[in-house]
Write a protein that binds this DNA or RNA. Structure first.
Lengths: 228, 228
DNA sequence: CGCTGCTTTGATTCGTATCAATAGCAGTGG
DNA sequence: CCACTGCTATTGATACGAATCAAAGCAGCG
């Protein structure tokens, strides 16, 4: 595999916990994998034999009802971890929503390696706890917020995650990695309602929408107010 | 503190990973605490200086909007773990919904102990991954399911968690630890809608409601069908 | 230039919230 | 034992927000 030591995620992904000699071991187990936009890596309910670090690109975790309604239950950015250590099938499917590059491992091999490397496991625990907090905040949004509150909350969350660290308070524009339908699937709305809310926010001067996927925040305070 | 070796949760909580001598160390750090129904241990947004194992009783994790709408984002049963290892404030409040008994630790002390005991940390990681899966399945319910699907899903989940292991497929009745308002707060509904759905299910013969908090499932297959 | 897929806009319907009143039950004290 | 109180749950009438159905607009691309 490519060299872990020179990996761009060396200091951001869970690998940051490892020493050079440990990294060498890890690099023997893993391999780089490119996936194209739209490709589904893991299917809901299937056994999930791989775990991976995301080096580049964005992926979505999707849960679906029997009759095909979909809810995006997680968004995965570079340096994030995907897959389900310690066995069992994946409770959701994982698909790339942009071209992506991954660093994949066989789950069993990874589990074994992790058991011998407590620092790695601690990093994974910290990350998982953070994901759990995020998921629970999202539950409040899904269960109790109105359409306008949902869209406002979404834009704030995206500003926070997509803008360079700490820039969210001042910064202006960013490019969403999602189309309207995907935003709807994140917020538990329909595409029409999502579109209407965004149009209304633009009409009210809170945001600009210079292109399909670009957003510029004009009035951060009002947006926070609106997010509930 | 009371003796960990004779603890009823000895083999079910995360402590199950520890050797007798390690348990002795742990018991010096922890202490038993009784909390009465309705008492709030941790407040949303406040610093959370304690973590705990639940020995007895049921607690809820609640997130709320600025204007007071509430969403229950987690339910904590005996042997479950509460609190936020590795710092920061609690992103939700934690309240007892029945009389409960806890085994509490100072977070910093616990973190330190955990860092020295990889097996404990692995148990915690497994538990956290399980919680995350559960939270994500709940996101599908909150974002995409109708009121009747929500209530049916809720009853099935409760049958699964409250009935003796493996009995869910055959068993009949159980006692909910929640009132109607709390069920509504779990499902992202109002109390009226929740009540109407339960009444309808009873009228249709799917369930019986022998007392305020008791539920008997008459037609498991139909309920599963209904859960979507 | 004319597809094709995504997004916006409009008209209508439907489900759930909201508002309001009543009913049932558990505990308390006369 | 029964009236009284407070709380929780149920039931009913209405309003409203978001879904649905339908069509038009707009990019990007061969």
């Amino acid at each position: 595999m490519t060299d872990c030591l020179s990996c761009i995620m060396r200091n951001r992904a869970i690998c940051a916990s490892l020493q050079p000699d440990e990294l060498l071991l890890l690099s023997r187990m893993g391999r780089r994998q490119r996936v194209s936009s739209g490709h589904t890596l893991l299917w809901e309910g299937d056994d999930a034999p791989v775990v991976a670090n995301v080096l580049e690109g964005v992926l979505k975790l999707v849960a679906a009802t029997a009759d095909g309604r979909e809810q995006i239950v997680g968004i995965v950015f570079p340096s994030d971890f995907i897959g389900r250590p310690f066995g069992k099938e994946s409770p959701y499917s994982v698909s790339a929503i942009s071209a992506a590059e991954l660093c994949t491992f066989h789950r069993d091999q990874f589990d074994e390696f992790a058991a011998d490397h407590p620092d790695l496991q601690q990093k994974l625990l910290r990350r998982t706890l953070g994901e759990l907090d995020r998921a629970r905040r999202w539950m409040l949004l899904l269960g109790r917020k109105s359409a306008s509150e949902k869209v406002a909350s979404f834009l704030l969350e995206m500003a926070d995650r997509l803008l360079p660290r700490g820039a969210a308070e001042t910064a202006r524009g960013f490019e969403l990695p999602f189309g309207r339908q995907q935003i709807a699937d994140i917020l538990g709305l329909t595409i029409e309602t999502t579109s209407r809310q965004l149009t209304k926010m633009r009409a009210d001067g809170l945001i600009d929408l210079p292109s399909r996927r670009a957003v510029v925040i004009n009035d951060l305070a009002a947006l926070k107010e609106m997010a509930g």
